[in-house]
Amino acid sequence: MSIIQLDTIIKTYHMGKVEVPALRGISLTLVKGDFVAIAGPSGSGKTTILNIIGLIDKPTSGSIVIADKNVTNMKKAGLTRMRQKELGFIFQSFNLISVLNVFENVELPLIIGKAEQTKAERRDWVNYLIEEVGLADRKKHKPAELSGGQQQRVAIARALSTKPQIVIADEPTANLDSATGETILNLMKKINKEQNTTFVFSTHDPVIHELADHVIFLKDGNIVRERKQAKEVKK
């Protein structure tokens, strides 16, 4: 069952009068519960493709279907709703709200999205997520008081708080040491298996993409190779 379908996606940036092609006609299909790594060297288009899947950037041409909804020509409000309900984001530099503590950062998407939960239900769910990422004793800490690995765990909990079908992670381990990076990846994989959430993340680290079930190799804006491992997908 496909959850993301990209068809001939082209993205061209304009740097003054110069056109810089970032994606040159990418088509791919990802299924629900997939754990996908987008691999490739710098400038290959990894971040661009994640931004397009995550609906925070628009392609120059091509069509996109996410969670059975054709979002190609969707308006701003519709895209915002899709990001609220269907998508979660994990950023390379964590992007936590610095004035909020761990609990509040994880709770934020639920409040922005006006989720239909009681206050108690919301608190229990946020506490559960924080425990899942192993930060139960850091709930009242501000991001500045946490290590990089801990901040990325908060970001993972925040990305999962609205129970999205898809989580996008742009180089989630790039700012972490290799051991912490592996821990983060294992945490993502654990959630992927337990909750059947589709994860799409980018990396240029061969060690990290070895952990993925499905690896898409990009070069100069094209898919040059795709590798899938047989895995059990929960339906």
Binding site: Q84, K85, N95, L108, P109, I112
Partner: peptide
């Protein structure tokens, strides 16, 4: 800009 962009990315509407 980064903070506001992040809020937009995690689903904050114009109104928010």
């Amino acid at each position: 800009m980064k903070e506001i962009g992040t809020l937009r990315a995690i689903g904050a509407s114009d109104g928010y």
